[in-house]
C-alpha cells in the first residue's frame, strides 16, 4: 500500500483535492464471497471467466476505499471505463491506483474527477474516470 494523501479535516472535501494528488492504492480480491454477492444481485454466473461486472464492482469498491472518510451525499455524475480485454479469474487480486485528475466548480457545484487504473499480476485490466459532484 502506498503512502497516500490524507484529508485535512474529518472527511475529504473539495479543498483537499488537487490534480495529480495520489489517493490510496487499494487491492480487491475477486473471491467466491464477492461472486456469490454478485449472483444474488444480478443473477447466476455462467462460464469459466468472472463476469465483467464483477470487475466493475471491484473498481467501484476500490474507488470508494481510495479516499475515506468522505461526506454523505456525493453524487456519481459520469463514468468512463476502458476494458483492455484481459480476463479476470477467481481469487485474482485487482490492484487499483487512484488519483485526482481534475476539479472545478461549476454552477456552485464541486466537481471532482478521480482517475483509476486496475491491474492483475501487473497487467492493466481496466481504467477509467469517476466524475463526482462532491458534497463539501
Amino acid at each position: 500500500m502506498t503512502q497516500a494523501a490524507m484529508p485535512k479535516g474529518d472527511v475529504w472535501t473539495y479543498d483537499d483535492f488537487a490534480p495529480g494528488l495520489a489517493l490510496k492504492t487499494v487491492t480487491v480480491v475477486l473471491d467466491q464471497a464477492k461472486l456469490d454477492l454478485w449472483a444474488q444481485v444480478y443473477g447466476s454466473v455462467d462460464g469459466a471467466t468472472l463476469p465483467q461486472g464483477l470487475l466493475v464492482s471491484a473498481m467501484v469498491e476500490a474507488f470508494i476505499a481510495s479516499g475515506q472518510p468522505r461526506p454523505k451525499g456525493n453524487i456519481h455524475a459520469s463514468q468512463s471505463l476502458r476494458f483492455t480485454g484481459v480476463c479476470a479469474a477467481l481469487n485474482d487480486e485487482l490492484v487499483v491506483t487512484a488519483s485526482c485528475a481534475d476539479k472545478e466548480i461549476k454552477k456552485d457545484r464541486k466537481w471532482v474527477t478521480i482517475r483509476t487504473e486496475g491491474t492483475i499480476g501487473g497487467q492493466v485490466v481496466c481504467h477509467g474516470d469517476f466524475l463526482i459532484i462532491w458534497k463539501l
Binding site: H76, S78, S80, R82, F83, T84, G85
Partner: peptide, 10 residues
C-alpha cells in the same frame, strides 16, 4: 464486449 471503451452519463 470484453475489450472497449464505455462512457456513461448518469
Amino acid at each position: 464486449f470484453a475489450a472497449g471503451d464505455l462512457n456513461l452519463r448518469f
